[in-house]
Computed example of a mutant assay.
Amino acid sequence: MEAAAKGESGASDELGARLKAFEGRAASVTGKGKDLVNEPMIRHWCEAMGDTDPAYTGPDAIAPPTMLQAWTMGGLSGHTGRAGAHDELFDLLDEAGCTSVVATDCEQEYLRPLRLGDEVGFDTVIESVSDRKTTKLGTGYFVTTRTDVRVGQDLVGTHRFRILKYAPARQKEAPKGTRARRPRPVVNRDNAGFWEGVERHQLLIQRCTDCGTLRHPWLPGCNACGGLDWDTVEASGEGTVYSYVVMHHPPFPAFDPPYAVGLIELAEGVRIVSNVVGVPYDKVRIGLPVRLEFRRYDEPDGDDEGGPLVLPVFRVLEDRAGGVG
């Protein structure tokens, strides 16, 4: 997530000065990974990510670099040896009304692969606390932690994690009789082509021009061969419900729960998350055939600001769903 922020330099910020004193303090000291780097965890990760790179299998397997943080996680029982600086910092922010938090970004640097049997150690410090910032979410502070991951004395990678701890901004109340607008998708340079296709009522799938692998969601590179060049193919629109959930809570102003959200497996072999329509939410089942359609939401009405939102949804084919709906 990118938060549009501006500094509030020039304003007296006693809290900010107190927060700055936490920079460089340890959030955890000499932490140890709960497991050695092992084949089952690598296999589970690769299956979840759909990564079939042969470097991650066999007796000489390495761990996918993006697993770096996974080896440092403490699970439900946590880690021993944690310092209190992180909790102290958050307590100060909570007392100042910055009770909400959102992750903004992370950065990882890889120095050497992790191999089967490696014992991971790590140290985490509070690297920086920003000046007070005002964002669309509210006013608060960006806090960046840095975790150095080691095997023995060797630094193997670095993980930086940044959050915004903020006091929520007051939401403007919508005029009576108007409906709340749906959240807009975050469009960036990696996925802009997908949303441009949706506007034209086309569901475009990325295709690697090096190995021909299709991928969704859109990514800057191929997760099969690493190639950076790609083109697109248009989905036929046919698919099946691979999995689904029924949303009951929490309620959002622009939505009417309960409703079904499906993981749709397209005829082309990739999967996409979207709403399942055409049958009652309690009639959705795994394996139901569906067909793509496009819906427009938030049509302008009178003085409403902004244009409509076009989204791909999937309608259950009634003739193969027992005539329900």
Rank of each mutant, 00 (worst) to 15 (best):
A48S: 03
G197V: 06
L204P: 08
Y297V: 03
Q153C: 11
K283G: 14
W71L: 03
A321P: 11
P65F: 14
L311Q: 11
L203G: 01
E196C: 14
V120R: 08
A174V: 15
E265D: 13
V313D: 02
E199T: 15
T66G: 03
M1G: 14
T135A: 01
V246E: 05
V241K: 05
I272F: 08
Q171A: 15
V187N: 09
D148A: 13
K176N: 12
F142S: 04
N275L: 10
G58I: 06
P185D: 10
E107C: 04
G58S: 07
H248E: 08
T104N: 02
P65G: 05
C208N: 05
K20G: 02
Y244Q: 09
A180S: 13
W45L: 01
M247D: 09
L164W: 00
G193K: 15
A3Q: 10
G31H: 04
L114H: 02
P280Y: 05
P65Y: 10
G31A: 06
V186W: 06
D148I: 13
A235Q: 11
T99Y: 02
L309A: 07
T104F: 00
R315C: 03
L219T: 15
A21W: 01
C211Y: 07
F314Y: 14
H44R: 10
R43N: 07
G278V: 10
D282M: 02
G81L: 01
T80L: 11
V120I: 13
R132W: 02
P175V: 09
S128M: 06
G24F: 11
T213S: 08
G81T: 02
H86D: 14
P65Q: 14
V125Y: 06
T232A: 05
P251C: 02
P289A: 06
H79M: 09
T232I: 03
P40Y: 00
G239F: 04
V187I: 15
L111F: 15
T134H: 02
E199H: 14
Q206K: 08
V276Y: 02
F142V: 04
D91W: 11
R150A: 10
A167E: 14
D154P: 03
C106W: 12
T135P: 07
F161V: 01
V270T: 08
K172M: 13
K283M: 09
G7Q: 13
P312Q: 11
C225N: 06
H79L: 07
Y297G: 04
E47N: 06
L311V: 15
M49F: 05
D229E: 12
R179G: 08
D154W: 05
S77I: 03
A169E: 01
T158M: 12
I272S: 03
P253A: 11
Y242N: 14
M247E: 06
E199R: 15
T124W: 00
E199L: 13
R150V: 05
L68Q: 10
G227S: 01
L263A: 13
E88L: 12
R150M: 07
L263M: 14
V276N: 02
T72K: 04
I264M: 08
G74N: 13
A61T: 04
N188V: 00
K32R: 10
P250H: 05
D53S: 07
L219I: 11
P54W: 04
R18P: 03
A63V: 00
D131Y: 00
T209H: 06
P251Y: 02
A21Q: 08
T57M: 11
K34P: 02
D190I: 15
E88I: 14
W230N: 08
V310R: 10
H249I: 00
V310F: 07
I62M: 10
